[in-house]
Nucleic acid binder design. Structure first.
Lengths: 193, 193, 193, 193
DNA sequence: TATGAATGAGACTTCATTCAT
DNA sequence: TATGAATGAAGTCTCATTCAT
């Protein structure tokens, strides 16, 4: 299993840095290899092609969001609290790694449709967990029981994503974490029964 | 002024079609020229370079949104009604032109950071109008007077944008206009005093 | 029609020289372009890819053999004389253009199976004409009427080809044309009734 | 002496299979190693480089032809009979090992000029034996005493080689051995006094 | 002897842009 | 204005070979 070998994550991390610092189209395989401290050819012992690196970046990093969110869901609080914690977690992960934030919010979106479809498939796992929170809240009476879950999920994710992207495009000029309470309030207001 | 000559819009429209049909990275200048019925070189009599075509596409098409929204704002209804009409207008324009929807929601986002910054600058005009609606609603007591306008605007725009993008990625399988009332309800709920 | 434009043959001829002088695997597209006095990209206005250049080389040059052989067949002599003239023509064309001889006898044979299959298809036209001579000779009683035409054709072509290849591999050290009468005699002896 | 160690022939045989099954350019050292059941690096304990493997393949396999032909020459029959037996032997060896036939007739010819020169040097031993048969036949009056031995040899070898190559390119669709009598007749006719 | 992970040079092709007509 | 043939820079990936174990 390639993913367990040390160089796999070494290259994934190098890709994040290379893409963040050079931009998607200027992050040539040779730059990623140099950043990772390996030869160009070594990349291809761990990844099928350049596309595979990019998808792996998203996959590995998205894993952090998903794992944290799974823990949040199990935490046995109210649905509103879970939603709030999800937003905090999302902002926290990206606040702590600006390279990653730049890559996921700006650079990786420049990839072609094929890659973006694969990225979306990975994202789906995260969105399913979000749906869980929403449905749970509807069932336990916290959230509006007549709302359309898909639309609600798109509102929540769209809001989080837009806020994060703006923060990156504004070059992290303000504190992303500080935005969390305001958004929580707005979204919970929108959803509440 | 180049913009008033007939071939200017002819090329802009051709670009929308070429990009929608071939994808951003496969919409070479020669394809746009062919679609417009002009020679490759002619493009450069009207546009500085390829980037200039793409920005012009966004600029010309965004104008429709802005003009409509200006009319909506002047319509003298409640802020909630204005917000609702804005959403309807947004969905209506994109529903009526799937090529344009594909281009703005999917393809143009593959452009590099520089182009997207310019696109964002054009978008700003639209967002300022949205801010106007929100502030007006806060002043007249319809909306929560303590909310952060920027965050509220990002929620509204992020939600609209995410819903539209999902609709395009799902290949227009459902009716976008039908989503409007649900979103209006959620968003007005979120914002209301 | 690309083939009628002057640069088409210019590139084909440059390819023969570049391959003869550098060897098949060292005849990069950039070398062919340089030899032809055009930019690398210009090659791709006339040829689909590198493979297409190589096949075109064979096709265009093989045309000379075929045209000459067609004239020989029409010349109204005995079948033996036609066979003799075919051999002379074959040797004459390659004697007069050592670059071409090197390319067809040595270099082009290093190409992959796909290219070689296409080359063989082109060669087929030549071999069909050879079959015509043989069959005619069998019908008019000059050649053995019980022989297997395919085997006879393979003997004639195999002999010519082996002699030419040896001549090239021996770096043209002897006069190829001088070999013709000896081969004519042997082959006509083999075939005669 | 490396050649006597068991892994030497193991690798040579693996190379024949790997090249026959994958084609010359797709028979990477790693594939040959895998087919031989050894590590890539082990190859280099027995062979100087990849070229050395290919030449060794030809050398080892050519040995069969040469040994058989030496026995035929010693068999004390007429020169015509010896020539006939040579053809039969040639066809028999390749008929019995289609992998080998594919490799010698098609794949190995894709190698570069340098390798083919070395292969030709190995082939020379075989051709010298063929010359022996021809000269003997000329001296004892069976064959035409005025013919050019080199040309005659090229005719015989060129014919055999062309017939075998065609058989391989036609994917062994007909019986190679059945061709032998026809060729014997044609060639002996060509050579006879 | 044997392994196999790591190396790194090298080439085909695309496409935005130019400029002679 | 309009044309379109020509330009040429630039990047992904393969694979023979090495060498530490």
């Amino acid at each position: 299993m390639k993913r367990n070998k040390p160089k796999y994550m070494q290259i994934v991390d190098a890709a994040v840095i290379a893409i963040a610092e050079n931009g998607y189209h200027q992050a040539q395989v040779s730059k990623i290899a140099k950043q990772a401290g390996v030869a160009d050819g070594t990349i291809y012992l761990y990844f099928k092609n350049k596309e595979d690196i990019l998808i792996s970046v998203f996959q590995e990093k998205m894993g952090i969001f998903v794992e944290n969110l799974q823990a949040i869901i199990k935490s046995g609080e109210t649905s509103s609290e879970k939603l709030g914690k999800m937003i905090e977690n999302h902002f926290h992960v990206l606040s702590s790694d600006r390279h990653l934030a730049t890559v996921t919010q700006l650079e990786l979106r420049q990839s072609n449709k094929e890659i973006r479809l694969k990225i979306n498939a990975i994202l789906k796992e995260y969105l399913i967990l979000l749906d869980q929170i929403l449905i749970e809240g509807m069932l336990n009476g916290e959230f509006n029981q007549t709302m359309d879950v898909r639309v609600a999920r798109q509102m929540v994710f769209g809001t989080i994503d837009e806020i994060t992207t703006s923060w990156v495009m504004n070059e992290y000029r303000y504190d992303l974490m500080e935005q969390a309470p305001k958004i929580q309030q707005l979204l919970i207001n929108a959803l509440k029964a």
